[in-house]
Amino acid sequence: MSYEAHFRVWRGDAEGGELRDYQVEVNDGEVVLDIIHRLQATQAGDLAVRWNCKAGKCGSCSAEVNGRPRLMCMTRMSVFTPEETVTVTPMRTFPVVRDLVTDVSFNYDKARQVPAFVPPKGVAAGEYRMRQVDVERSQEFRKCIECFLCQDTCHVVRDHEENKTSFAGPRFLMRIAELDMHPLDAAAEVGLTRSSSAQEDHGLGYCNITKCCTEVCPEHIKITDNALIPLKERAVDRKYDPLVWLGNKIRRRDA
C-alpha cells in the first residue's frame, strides 16, 4: 500500500529555521529515514541528514520524531496512521549544524573526561583472563551504539544548558559504571575511586532516575536500573554509609 503522508521537517541552521511542510509518498515497510531520503531525492535536495547503516547499529540518524527521541532508521512508518502528520526535528539538546544534523561534540568532550580502563599490574595485554559471570554485567553496557538519544532526552541538560559543564549524562555515567564493575580495572590501585568520582566530578547526583534514558535507548539497555542506580549505591557505599566505610577500613579489601 502506498499513500501520501504529511511531513513537517525542521529546516535551518544555528541562525534560525522553521518547520516546513511536505507531501511525500510512503510505501509498505518503510521507515522514517526512507521518507527523509525520498524528500532529499525529490523535493529538498539540500536537506542535511546524518545517517550511515540504516540498521540501528551505527547511531547516526538520531532525531526527534513527533517530539520523541528516536533513530529514524528504526522508526517504522506503520506506527503512524496515513492521516497523521509526522514531525521530524533535530535533537533539541545539542547545537544544530543544519537541518537534522546536530553538533554532538559535547558527548566527545564528556567521553574524554572519563578516566580510561586502568590495566592491572603484572598482566600483559592479551593475558587478561576473566570469568564470563564477572563480565556479563558490563557487557550489557557495551551494546551502546552512542546514538546519544539518552543524552538528548535527559532533562538535566536538555532543560538546563548550564548543567552541561558539570553533568556527564547517562551514557558516560554508564561508562563509569561499566569500568567500576570491570573485574580487572585497577583504578583503585592508582587512587581513583570511580563511584566517588562519578558523584564528585561527573554529576551523578544530578540524575533523579526518571528513566527517560532507558525509555529511549534503541539497544534496550537498562541504563537506570543496571548502571545509574547501582552506581549511586556504590557512591553511597563510599560517601554516605559509615558501616560499609568502616567495614572496608577494617578488612582493607575490595570485594
Binding site: G67, P90, R158, D159, E161
Partner: peptide, 20 residues
C-alpha cells in the same frame, strides 16, 4: 531562552512536539 529554546539549538518555539 532557556532549555530547548537556548540559542544555538534548533529554533523551535514549541516546548515539546509530542503528539501522544
Amino acid at each position: 531562552r532557556r532549555g530547548v529554546l537556548t540559542p544555538g539549538r534548533a529554533a523551535i518555539s514549541a516546548r515539546h512536539l509530542r503528539t501522544d
